[in-house]
Amino acid sequence: MSEHTHDHGHDHDHPHPNQPDIDSEPMGYYQLMGSALGELLIEKGVITADELRAAIENVDSRSPEGGAKVVAKAWTDPEYKARLLENGTAAVDELGIDMPATHLVVVENTDKVHNVIVCTLCSCYPRMLLGLPPDWYKAHAYRSRVVREPRAVLKEFGTELADDVEIRVHDSTADMRYLVLPRRPDGTEGMSEEELVELVSRDCMIGVTLPRSS
């Protein structure tokens, strides 16, 4: 370890978490603004650098694997599934996933009903279960169209549903967050909970695709 022995070159080891992440390009105006905001808040003692680092790590620690574990458990444990559909917030808390600010509503796909999640007003998303939302979820096209022509939008994701399946769109406008409980694929009867987790993609928990069967 010799980080103190050379001092030439540019500053790659800036001591607090306000460093730019794209080394090859100058920072844009909003990156500068965000960086300035962070540094000012730290200088004023409103937040600390350690708190900010921990908050960023917390953002990073959420991923669709959390949601996939919930789904796989619901597929293998009927009593858990019943609790999950009755009170999503309490049921995911059993698995150590805390939803402090919002309530979780889990909506179940059946052979007659297919659920799709959107937030037409901003980008409300069950981040504690799925991590940060994908770009398309936040973009105009998905938010505008999925409430008005859901089948056409699902086709763009490669998802085709039978005409007689009823599509239920959920527009997350307020304090609820939604997670789709997909149907357990046929032919997975012998699979363990751990194996099932692998079949559950982020997108099938938003309702734009179906889970893989192998």
């Binding site: 978490p17 306000n18 460093q19 730019p20 992440d21 794209i22 920072m27 990156q31 965000g34 960086s35 905001l37 962070g38 808040l41 409103v46 937040i47 708190e51 900010l52 908050a55 960023i56 917390n58 953002v59 990073d60 940060l132």
Partner: peptide, 15 residues
């Protein structure tokens, strides 16, 4: 997601 994106997310969570 780039660092600057997670940073403003983290700042917002703290505030």
């Amino acid at each position: 997601h780039g660092f600057w994106e997670k940073r403003i997310d983290g700042i917002r969570l703290l505030l």
